[in-house]
Design a protein around this nucleic acid. Structure first.
Length: 937
RNA sequence: GGGGGAUUAGCUCAGUUGGGAGAGCGUCUGGCUGGCAGCCAGAAGGUCAGGGGUUCGAGUCCCCUAUCCUCCA
């Protein structure tokens, strides 16, 4: 039996038993914070099990794409471990229970109409005291007692060990079905039937409370079951995966021998590349965090296996077509993204190979150190350090160490990694928690009627008051510190979702005013977060809920503009430019999308112009609720990573944009008013971010841009469009002045462009924007910091000019002049002098020249800079340092007199102080100090 | 979300109680050789990522921000 046949047979069997056939959920359920990836078929039904949502059906069956990395080390080594796999399952939400679940499982496995497997090939396990299940298996089905094994809570309870160790929440016993292959091979667990019938509360004993409605949750590993049916010894040899392994073997040019080390690596590569391709297909790219990081790690492990097999160039991406070939049957849409997925993989593996090269250099460095220390073991902690900081994989480390006859301390490595794990903090999340006031509310109130599409205000009944984790009947504490959440039976307030921020506004009744600062969403509940201004709230009150209409309108402008931008991006960049995330606030929006390269300014301007054209086209905007299938036919934008309800709300703009969206929108695109893209940047590799403004904010931004450029131009005394070149001149003159002062050299007269006359006509906004951007870039500051920066540069020029002037008027501070002032001390020349206007660099130059010309010599030069600072530099020629003099100590002692300190090397040192008026006294002291040093006093 | 690191010349990077901003490669100029390869000499090239703080003095110490790398969850 083929894989595709088993999948289809399972689903149609349960359809024939009244189950709704649901499609596989996405691989990354963004709506579920407790998991990174969908780990099992039941995941998409969590809310159904908990009664959190209204049920349209009580029985479902699925084939679910799953990803698990818990046992990643076993992949390739064992027969059945995989990271990506498919799971068949049937589910009951308070409908049928153990008896039907077991009977149907048995019928599917053994009936000749279905799988028709010999009943003698099966045995089952059940939970210790689950007599109900035991009876069904033995009495109804007729299994002999030696084929029904009772196991403890760690084997036959879900979650494992729950009665004793928790977590609290929904749980129950399970029953596993084992297949015994003919010929006496190892038995295989192929199906697990979970009977969720308890709510665990606290520690044993008596902590398992029966649930009012009991559920069934079963899981049959597709690949594993196929492997047993096909009589092959590992999942990797079934009809779908064997060709993939062969493809890996081809690309790697390593013959596939199942039992060899290389064979294990080939299987692992096959598994990992399939997992990566399926995830990337759903727009989950390799990245530095969370699910993205898991994908990066999977990809790297595969690359590393290839590396160990001798490959040094990117190769994984070549396997994408093979993966598509295998997966496009059940998931036809994977065929649409082959090129994109391959590009992403190629990019990522290329950059990883670069990282590996860096790692090799660091490993070399460490080996050199070991050799010089005459040690023969690579310290595990040091290796862990390199791994954590630079990503040097331990496997590579070990292999290279072996070449150098060095041992690798795996134990030390592991414990260091564990310590790192602790230090990084672990998230603990229970699989299903039914705690918190929101859960309590949901038992009573399944959803809140949302009226915000039609109106900004409505009367309503106050149903619940949530303060912290408690439900209250009344609330009277005023002020922002006393924040609570309110639940109404209906509301015009939009709760944050789909990137659109929550509404603000006011909820009031006679003598009571409550400020809504934000609106959240918990499932279908809308929670108004805020505080009381006056009065007392009581549940049951009739209240008036009023949204801040002006802000809501600004949000609508931004949201409609977001759809327009999405459309413009796809038109301009291509259909790969898909939404990766978005945030919509009042007249402000942020839009992340898939694109490998940055977008040049000209292209960005084109995109902006295209968006503006859509706005000016004054296209009508409509929202309709239609069946999902109809929306798909209409060509609405569907995102792979999104989970859509059915029916869906489809927002259309003219004939250019159709998106599935629950947000609030304008009635006509013209109402967006102004639109401007203000930033384009990277979010992570392969993802770009655009920030844009609409309406009032866009207009204000344009005003401000114009005003800022004009201010800068005025400071620079040029016309607005000459600001960039004038700013460049200014920056250049600062650089040249600094160089001149520090080098003591001659000033090279810079050919500064004469200030051009302001141009006659008023520059266009595009020109203004361009000019300000360019100015900001030359000055290396943010757009609106330009005038500030210009002022500070101008001040710097002035002060540098002053210094230069001082230096010029102080006459020629030449080596000769200083030597004329020299006195004698013992056999040496001694120069102690003030050099007005000089800086430390110039003084050092002078000292160098004096030492060259007149050794043995001691020099101490001083200058006051500014009003309240003194700089001192001292230098000694070799003869004097040999005799025990120390420039650092010398200059430090002298600097004390001017209220400072200093230090440096024996032959050259520098100091400073804050009291210029004491400088003469200090210089006088300098002679004595040096004399004492030379005479050991 | 948390831990570790990086950011210095066009490129690759060094910079050690805080006290002269450096090397190699590349570029340019000159020289050696009959010419080239090559060798020698010299030069140009820096807002030490940005901002704040400590200090007489910060590439170096502290804080913040940005970007990138990396590990853990």
């Amino acid at each position: 039996m083929k894989t595709d046949e088993l999948r289809e047979m399972y689903l149609s069997f349960f359809e024939s038993k009244g189950h709704k056939r649901c499609p596989s959920d996405v691989l990354v359920p963004t709506w579920d914070p407790s998991v990174l990836f969908t780990p099992a078929g039941m995941n998409q039904f969590k809310d159904h099990f908990l009664g959190k949502v209204k049920l349209d059906f009580a029985r479902a069956t699925t084939c679910q794409k799953c990803l698990r990395t818990g046992d990643i080390d076993n992949v390739g080594r064992t027969a059945y471990h995989q990271t990506f796999f498919e799971m068949l399952g049937n589910f009951s939400f308070g409908d049928y229970f153990k008896r039907d679940a077991i009977h149907w499982a048995w019928e599917f496995l053994t009936s000749s109409r279905w799988l028709g497997i010999d009943a003698d090939r099966f045995s089952v396990s059940i939970y210790l005291d689950d007599d109900e299940a035991a009876d069904i298996w033995q009495q109804d089905i007729g299994l002999s007692s030696d084929r029904v094994e009772r196991m403890d809570e760690y084997d036959n309870f879900w979650p494992a060990g729950a009665p004793t160790e928790g977590p609290d929440g929904v749980c129950g016993p399970c029953s596993e079905i084992f297949y015994h292959p003919p010929g006496g091979g190892q038995e295989v667990e192929i199906w697990n039937l979970v009977f969720t019938q308890f709510n665990r509360v606290g520690s044993p004993p008596d902590n398992l409370r029966p649930l009012p409605s009991k559920n069934i949750d079963t899981g049959m590993g597709l690949e594993r079951t196929v492997a047993t049916l096909q009589g092959v010894d590992t999942n990797f040899h079934i009809d779908t995966l064997r060709p993939l392994v062969e493809a890996v073997s081809d690309v790697c040019q390593v013959a596939y021998q199942p039992d060899s080390d290389a064979g294990r690596r080939l299987r692992r590569i096959a598994d990992h590349v399939r997992a990566c391709a399926m995830a990337i297909h759903e727009n989950v790219y390799p990245g530095p965090q969370k699910e993205k990081y898991v994908i990066r790690r999977l990809l790297r492990r595969a690359v590393l296996d290839g590396h160990q097999l001798g490959l040094r160039e990117a190769f994984l991406y070549q396997l994408v077509p093979a993966v598509v070939e295998v997966m496009k049957g059940p998931y036809p849409d994977v065929g649409e993204t082959t090129g994109r997925v391959a590009d992403v993989i190629k990019n990522e593996e290329t950059s990883f190979l670069g990282t590996l090269d860096d790692g090799l250099a660091r490993i070399e460095h460490l080996f050199a150190q070991l050799r010089s220390d005459h040690r023969n073991t690579v310290d595990g902690a040091a290796a862990a350090d390199l791994y954590q900081t630079y990503g040097v994989p331990p496997e590579v480390f070990e292999a290279l160490a072996a070449e150098q006859q060095l041992a690798f301390d795996w134990e030390g490595f592991q414990s260091a990694m564990e310590a790192h794990g602790e230090a990084s903090g672990r998230l603990s999340h229970s699989v299903m928690d039914v705690k918190g006031p929101e859960a309590t509310i949901k038992q009573v109130l399944h959803s809140v009627e949302f009226l915000g599409y039609q109106t900004a205000q409505t009367d309503a009944e106050l149903k619940f008051i949530i303060a912290g984790e408690q439900l209250l009947d009344r609330w009277s504490a005023p002020g922002p510190e006393a924040a609570v959440r309110l639940v109404l039976d209906r509301t015009p307030f939009y709760g944050e979702a789909g990137g659109q921020v929550g509404d603000t506004g006011e909820i009031s009744t006679d003598g009571v005013r409550f400020v809504v600062t934000d609106t959240d969403r918990e499932g279908d509940l809308l929670l108004h977060r805020g505080y009381l201004l006056e009065g007392e709230l009581r549940t049951g009150n009739r209240v008036l809920a009023v949204v801040d209409a002006e802000r809501r309108l600004a949000i609508r402008r931004a949201h409609s503009a977001t759809h327009i931008l999405h459309h413009a991006l796809q038109q301009n960049l291509g259909s790969h430019a898909q939404q990766q995330g978005s945030k919509v606030d009042g007249d402000w929006l942020r839009f992340d999308f898939t694109n490998l390269a940055s977008i040049p300014a000209e292209q960005l301007a084109e995109i902006e112009a295209a968006a503006v054209a859509c706005i000016e086209a004054a296209a009508p905007i409509t929202a309709t609720t239609v069946p999902l299938a109809e929306a798909r036919r209409a060509g609405a934008m569907m995102l792979f990573g999104e989970k859509y309800p059915d029916p869906v709300r489809m927002v259309s703009m003219g004939d250019f944009s159709k998106e599935l969206c629950g947000g609030t929108h304008l009635d006509n695109t013209r109402d967006v008013g102004a639109f401007e893209i203000t930033a384009e940047e990277a979010v992570s590799s392969g993802v770009r971010r655009v920030v844009a403004l609409t309406g009032d904010k866009a207009r204000e931004h344009a005003e401000r841009t114009r005003a800022t450029l004009e201010e800068a131009a005025q400071l620079l005394q040029v016309g607005p469009l000459q600001a960039p070149s004038a700013a460049a001149d200014l920056a250049r003159s600062v650089r040249e002045l600094k160089k001149e002062l520090s080098g003591g050299g001659q000033r090279t007269e810079s050919a500064s462009d004469a200030a051009a006359a302001p141009s006659g006509s008023r520059p266009t906004y595009a020109e203004v924007k361009q000019a300000l951007r360019q100015t900001a870039r030359t000055l290396n500051v943010a757009l609106f910091e330009v005038p500030t920066r210009v002022r500070s540069l101008q001040a710097e020029v002035e002060s540098l000019e002053q210094q230069r002037q001082q230096l010029v008027t102080s006459g020629d501070v030449s080596v000769d002049r200083l030597l004329e002032q020299a006195t004698r001390l013992d056999e040496c020349q001694l120069v102690i002098a003030e050099v007005p206007g000089a800086n430390p660099n110039l003084m050092r130059h002078l000292i160098d020249r004096l030492r060259q010309q007149a050794a043995p010599i001691a020099v101490l030069l001083a200058a006051s800079s500014g009003d309240d600072k003194v700089v001192l530099v001292a230098g000694l020629s070799g003869e004097l340092t040999d005799r025990g003099a120390h420039a650092g100590k010398w200059v430090a002692a002298v600097a004390q007199v001017v209220g400072g300190g200093g230090g440096g090397k024996p032959d050259l040192a520098q100091a400073g102080g804050r009291r210029p008026e004491q400088l003469p006294a200090a210089l006088e002291l300098a002679v004595d100090v040096l004399q004492q040093q030379l005479h050991g006093g």
